[in-house]
Design a protein around this nucleic acid. Structure first.
Length: 518
RNA sequence: GGCCCGUUGGUCUAGCGGCAGGACACAAGGUUCUCAGCCUUGCGGCGCGGGUUCGAUUCCCGCACGGGUCACCA
């Protein structure tokens, strides 16, 4: 029975790289009928754990990554907050002390600091000579009489190698001598991550530790702890990290500014900001960026698109197939096809997955996704408005890549006198196009005769008008588009006319003609 | 700096000793009332040096480069 876990610290946001790691863990559990556990690594005494945790849980829920055990859902191995398991950590530290795998160390921080600096000056690797190690109670009392307080340190081996069998990297061999006597328990009695992590993984019966490769250098000390405690080793798999756009360094939330120099990343960011602005979203400037999952939810991405994209960051089935539903990825994922090298985050490819998924959604689904954005923009106050949103969504088709893109079609919703004209297009298609104004007026004169008013009838009427005037349809259609939408680009002209209705079309043509003659 | 990991077009990747393939992006053409889309075509890659071999992107060694990590953080 496979049991995997994802163990976030409550930081207030869900990082895209973390999602990838969680996804792989989740897939592994789901495909084998095992369990996926969410454990909260909050040993670093945070103040608002629940507040900082909420965005993470919300993010996973939105993505559809559910957990069998963990916060909110509980489980047979509760509690799932590392801070609430402190007793177990302390007991483990005591056992390590008793078995001689750890020792009480009375060094003062500044003394250690000095030794480290000395080693650096001498250009030798720092190895603590354990000079403040208490070998017995009496010595401990002597140190304590000097006002010293003890931390608990691992008494690491200084001979031989630690061999880690990694499912992704193969055999990794590290000399024990290159390891430090890591502190596992602070002077205040609380325990540190490495101890806590190993003990919790054991207590939660985690079978597969699948995590980012930055943890690989931590593994020997964890192996030492768990073997000293007599635990069985989990299977290890260290994933390559998700790298920054166009680079090879680890993707980090802190380097947003730097990523904005990357064109594709900047384009995604602008895309998001423009949606947020037009939908009057209350965004948290701290988490509204493409490194954080919230960003995608806010602007209307589909969870499946994100999961599919992330699946392919560091994993490939055969190098050909790239599209997977969640069920398919659950069935087909395997750790032995995980890549060894870091993969850089590619905003364009993510968007292309998103666009594809969005395009194949039934219209009802798309309307459901798009509607909240139209509502936030203040466009929807009646059933007629809702129908119009639907009509625009259908007409826009694949132009709506993320749900928030509905906002591109504001010309269908705003009052006629609020229309903004693209100056360049207006100049080129109306002012500067000979005969454009006459043609617009001529078509406007026929509006009343078009009944019923829809895409087919407006098209027939306009074509007939063009034939009578002996002009190509292109002669009028560009001018008409600018006149009624304000821009030179958009979806089909006749869909546009149908949606706007005869009154708006007449008013807008008149306004454009007046403006052009001014 | 020590230790560890990695290196196939701009990006994600396939490749398990025999003509380096796919996807995104990019470019050109076609289609449409514009845009998007779609179709066709194109551009572009095995970090370097040795070795083994008839033959190396593939196996071995070295180097270079990139990255991760070295806390009383997680």
């Amino acid at each position: 029975m496979i049991r995997t876990r994802f163990a976030p610290s409550p930081t207030g946001y869900l990082h895209i790289g973390g999602v990838r790691t969680a996804l792989f863990n989740w897939l592994l559990a789901r495909q084998s009928g095992g369990s996926f556990v969410l454990r909260i690594d909050d040993t670093d005494a945070q103040r608002n754990v629940s507040e900082a945790l909420q965005p993470i849980l919300d993010g996973f829920r939105w993505l559809g990554i559910d957990w069998d055990e963990g916060p909110d859902v509980g489980g047979t191995h509760a509690p799932y907050y590392q801070s609430q398991r402190a007793e177990s950590h302390v007991a483990a530290a005591e056992r390590l002390l008793a078995s001689g795998h750890a020792y009480r160390d009375y060094a003062r921080p500044e003394e250690l600091q000095q030794l480290r600096q000395q080693a650096e000056r001498d250009k030798v690797a720092f190895v603590y000579d354990r000079r403040w190690m208490a070998t017995d109670d009496e010595q401990a009392r002597r140190f304590e009489a000097e006002g010293r307080v003890a931390v608990v340190r691992l008494k690491m081996p200084r001979q031989g190698d630690c061999v880690i069998d990694d499912l992704i990297r193969g055999e990794v061999r590290v000399a024990w001598a290159s390891e430090q006597d890591h502190v596992i328990r602070r002077a205040d009695g609380t325990c540190l991550y490495h101890l806590a992590s190993v003990v919790d993984d054991h207590d939660l019966e985690i079978t597969h530790v699948v995590r980012a490769e930055e943890h690989l250098p931590n593994t020997p000390r964890q192996v030492f702890i768990l073997e000293s405690l007599g635990y069985q080793r989990p299977v290890y798999a260290h994933l390559p990290y998700v790298a920054e756009p166009g680079g090879t360094a680890k993707l980090s939330k802190r380097k947003l500014k730097q990523y904005l120099k990357n064109q594709d990343f900047a384009a995604l960011m602008r895309h998001g900001e423009s949606i947020a602005e037009r939908a009057n979203l209350e965004i948290d400037s701290d988490t509204f960026n493409p490194v954080i999952v919230d960003f995608y939810r806010e602007i209307g991405f589909l969870p499946e698109a994100i999961l599919n994209y992330l699946l392919l960051v560091g994993w490939a089935l055969d190098g050909e197939r790239e599209r997977f539903t969640v069920d398919e990825m659950t069935q087909l994922f395997s750790l032995d096809r995980v890549t060894k090298s870091p993969a850089s985050f590619d905003p364009q490819k993510l968007l292309s997955f998103q666009a594809e998924r969005m395009a194949e959604l039934p219209i009802d689904e798309r309307v459901k996704l798009v509607l909240p954005f139209a509502e936030k923009a203040g466009w929807v106050t009646s059933e007629a408005d809702r129908q119009r949103v639907r009509a625009v969504t259908a007409a826009a088709g694949e132009r709506i890549r993320v749900a928030g893109d509905i906002l591109d079609f504001d010309f269908c919703f705003i009052a006629d006198d609020q229309l903004n004209y693209d100056a360049k297009a207006f100049q080129k298609r109306i002012v500067g196009a000979s005969g454009a104004i006459e043609l617009l007026n001529g078509f406007a004169a026929r509006i009343d005769s078009i009944q019923p008013w829809n895409a087919a009838t407006t098209e027939a009427s306009l074509k007939q008008y063009c034939a009578e005037q002996e002009v190509g349809i292109g002669q009028i259609i560009h001018a008409l588009r600018v006149a009624v939408t304000g821009t030179a680009v958009g979806f089909g002209m006749f869909d546009t006319l149908e949606i706007l209705g005869p009154a708006a079309v007449r008013t807008r043509i008149a306004a454009a003609v007046a403006k052009a003659q001014n």
